[in-house]
Design a protein around this nucleic acid. Structure first.
Lengths: 200, 200, 200, 200
DNA sequence: GATGAATGAGGATTCATTCAT
DNA sequence: CATGAATGAATCCTCATTCAT
């Protein structure tokens, strides 16, 4: 059965979402052109109308990831109005992302991403650095507000913030249904606060 | 040219080390029988005298990793005599491991490891859990000693400990030579201590 | 050079015929994907568009064999109108099949067929049993007609019928061009008739 | 553990018997040097002290087969004193051989045997022809005795005799435990006699 | 835009055989 | 004689990609 001809913009999105779904379930290395095409409902070779190679799909996925991650940060700025609240919001959102799909960590932790072109590595660097520097900015603001200790190093503390999320991402993969993201958050956040907040 | 005949115990080790080196540079998925054989200096089929399949090599590598990781914990017990010192020692050693080779995180985080046999997933679980429970044990001892706050949850704190190491593992991959493990340690450790230590 | 694109139905047939030819000349075990692809004029991996595995090709060949064998029986029913004439017709056709290609016995007698999936063994059983029971049916009709002795056991006699063909199949293999199928038929058929026919 | 050094004559026999056993269970194509060595209790490479190649083992097995088959004929001559009795004796012995081990038919029907060297094909021819001509001789004696019809062609009748045994060999393979060799003999022998014996 | 067929570069594995000890 | 290690040829199969329709 012939698939309906579909505008390339729409198809591109369908393809990326299909790829994302596969990655979320089976990891980046299990991503195959055949698998994606199947999920989209077209034939493998038809993919090449929309992406010139598998590499390009991987790049596209990274762009998607950047969006998702940075949107969290922006929303934090909009909805919360002090540093600690913003950080907590971001953490909760990020953990929610993990629950929604394991794709994000599987992508960022996948060796498949580091191989490929060096352009891809740069892209990953950029995403990570944007994220870290957004966190740093919030931290600095908190320091100015006086809610966050003056003796922390914002860049390192941003990495520590990541340190609340990454182990969760790994454990969600390894311990599968037994790892409880909510209680992880509840336990880890106060400790993080303790290590950075100014005590009144 | 015919490779010199070499005792199987030695070859096994050579093979695992070669595999480890490849993984460290190119990731688990780039590990191929041909590649390993080449690095060892024998012909691919000769590998099968020492390992009955690629799977067995991967298992062997996991065993090696378990050893490396747990040895750090044991040494910490021998060389250091209070909880905080032990934890710091383990962290430093673990970071050193990352510097030595990127293989460790690439292996433990690789989706290639989760696929394959479910026996392998169990092995990874076991390694992770041994590591976490060893950390928990040290934390509990610290609580009894009175050096570590009584209100922390040891299991979650062990995961936070991992949170100092994992981001480093990722950043070491992504930022390659620019990420400085030493300064990371210097910045992150005091914050961790702040969040768990009893203040005198 | 790129092979002309050819409809899968046609290619499937080409592939089975090529496989059959190879088996006829070199036996089932000499059948290789490379060999078949070469004979068809495509690249080995192209075979997998038409058959998902070598197993499937072997199954396809068995289906072909079943068809060939059972078609003889059907034609006998159409063209001849008494038991002995039908049996003679079947024998002649079956011997002709042997002349055409040695594939049939090489397949049905090959241990390569018995290994593989147990599904394949069932298929062989089924072919053999259909053939034998078709022969039995004709024999029973002859007994009712009064042309075949009432004291024979149809099932065993069907096997004896096979006993005219199988040695020919073996000898055709072993004595190659020197074995004369026609004179074999001329000598063996009267004896078979003598042992089952009612003497008027 | 090192196997005891053993005289080559003895080892040769052990090897052939092991090979025979494997063939009987799994067919000629499943015969591997590793398998044989294992059964004998030595290491694969040690086989090459006794046989220079796998081919030579196959040749050795054929010699063994010749012996077994022709011994039946000789014993028939010794123990029975008229043509029909001798033929019946041979048939019973031959069917007994099938029960003992499926090796014989698996060898004679195996394509693996026809490939190999042309020397091997000659050997098979020779075995078959010796067997057939021994049968022919008995038949001719029966014709002279007056117990066997004068109008049969001895050579073709010898092939028919084979026709009692071969289908049994095939069915024993295919229908495995359900095929009853004894009742096959009981049903088939009278029909054979009917077609060749002089009626008093 | 989509399809079906074909390609080619791997990749894991098996197995008979060789060879130094 | 026997062993353990190494070899090389062969085999099945996967997958990204190309291309004519």
């Amino acid at each position: 059965m012939r698939a309906k001809k579909t505008n390339t913009e729409i198809r591109k999105e369908q393809i990326l979402l299909a790829a994302l779904k596969i990655i979320g379930l089976q990891g980046v290395n299990a991503l195959s052109i055949v698998g994606v095409a199947e999920k989209v409902g077209i034939v493998p070779s038809a993919l090449y109308r929309h992406f010139s190679s598998k590499e390009e799909i991987l790049d596209g996925i990274l762009d998607l990831m950047r969006e998702k991650v940075l949107k969290n940060v922006q929303q934090a700025r909009l909805k919360k109005h002090n540093a600690l609240a913003r950080l907590e919001f971001i953490m909760m959102r990020h953990l929610a992302l993990l629950k929604e799909s394991r794709a994000l960590p599987l992508i960022l932790l996948s060796d498949a991403m580091y191989l490929g072109t060096s352009a891809r590595l740069s892209k990953i660097q950029e995403i990570l650095e944007s994220y870290l520097s957004a966190l740093s900015a919030i931290l600095k603001e908190g320091m100015e507000e006086g809610s966050i200790r003056a003796d922390i190093v914002p860049e390192s503390t941003a990495i520590m913030f990541l340190g609340m999320i990454l182990p969760a991402a790994v454990l969600v993969n390894v311990q599968a249904p037994f790892f409880n993201l909510e209680s992880h958050a509840a336990n880890v956040w106060p400790a993080f606060v303790r290590s950075i907040a100014v005590i009144n």
